[in-house]
Computed example of a mutant assay.
Amino acid sequence: MELKWLEWAKQMQAIAQTGLTYTKDVYDIERYEQLRQMSIEIMMNYTLVSQEKIALTFASDSGYATPKVDIRGVIFKENKILLVREKLDGAWALPGGWADIGYSPSEIAVKEVKEESGFDVAPVRLLAVLDKKFHDHPPEPYHVYKFFILCKIVGGEATVGVETSAVDFFEMDQLPELSAERNTKKQIQTLFEFLENPNKEIILD
């Protein structure tokens, strides 16, 4: 479960962002700006990130506040799962990343798998939509929904990308160090259940 201070900071930022989007009253604008500044100060006091960076990445959005979407491609081959090693932390993850505007979830999965692993894939089905706050990920400033989309290889070959340094397939009992920010061991275990039972129902939350 999320740390309380992080939950409060996210909620304060969302309220401020949405309020600034719709209010016309100058006094309300001032109050929402103060609320946004308080959310920045909470993040700044409980993390090692500078106020300037927090303001740019955490409290710079406009419009109605909504969760961010992280999409991961799930590819099995010979009872092994495809993982890529992230350059940022040297750990392994399902290929994927933030959803881009203008692309469908399936298109994002195909695009990210190609860019990070070199494989050409075709989407097969949605396996799970998870709220990141319910899972054992490190604290982060965003509210994130994670989409896991099963794909099949139709071409290409294992090739590292700009953000990856290795590509490989792993059995469930031989997983490497996982990038906890991107996926957890429990999530990978759950995905292997779909390999054993292709008719398993989609998982929500």
Rank of each mutant, 00 (worst) to 15 (best):
V144P: 06
Q13P: 00
Q174F: 12
G63F: 05
V160N: 11
E116I: 01
A91R: 15
W8E: 15
I153Q: 15
M43F: 04
K77E: 14
C151Q: 02
K132C: 00
I71D: 01
T57Q: 11
A9M: 02
E140C: 10
E78N: 14
K4A: 11
L83N: 10
E181A: 06
A109P: 09
E107I: 05
M44H: 11
H135M: 11
E52A: 15
S62V: 13
T66Y: 09
I149R: 02
L48A: 12
Q174S: 15
I42V: 14
A99T: 00
S62Y: 10
Q189G: 10
L83C: 12
A122N: 08
A93L: 07
F170V: 08
G156F: 01
R85D: 00
Q174K: 15
M43G: 00
G102H: 06
A55K: 15
A93E: 09
L126M: 12
V74H: 01
R182Y: 13
D173F: 12
A93M: 14
E196D: 15
Y32P: 08
I42N: 03
L20I: 02
K186T: 11
Y142L: 10
M172Y: 01
L82V: 09
A14N: 05
K111V: 00
L204G: 06
S165G: 05
H143Q: 08
L20F: 03
Q187A: 03
G155N: 07
L20P: 02
E7H: 11
N199G: 10
L195R: 07
L3F: 02
S39H: 02
D25V: 02
I153N: 06
N197V: 03
M43K: 01
D205L: 08
I71M: 04
E157D: 07
I15T: 14
D173T: 13
G97L: 07
D28E: 15
K111Q: 06
V74Y: 00
A65R: 09
Q174G: 12
L127T: 07
Q187W: 00
T23M: 07
V74F: 02
T47S: 12
E116A: 01
G19L: 00
S106E: 15
E86M: 11
D131V: 11
S62K: 13
L20N: 01
E30V: 09
T57E: 11
S179R: 08
F134G: 05
Y142G: 03
T21W: 09
F148E: 06
K68Q: 12
E41V: 10
E171D: 09
S106Q: 14
M12I: 05
L20E: 03
T18Q: 06
S39A: 13
W8A: 10
I71E: 03
G102Q: 04
F58V: 13
K132I: 01
V167P: 00
E177M: 12
I81F: 04
R31E: 04
Y64K: 14
K24N: 14
I54W: 07
T23R: 08
G73F: 06
Q17E: 13
L130T: 09
W92M: 08
M1F: 09
G63H: 04
D28W: 12
F76R: 07
T164P: 08
P123A: 14
D70N: 14
G19P: 00
E78K: 10
N79A: 11
F148V: 06
G118Y: 06
D173A: 10
A59I: 01
I81D: 04
K132P: 00
L150F: 02
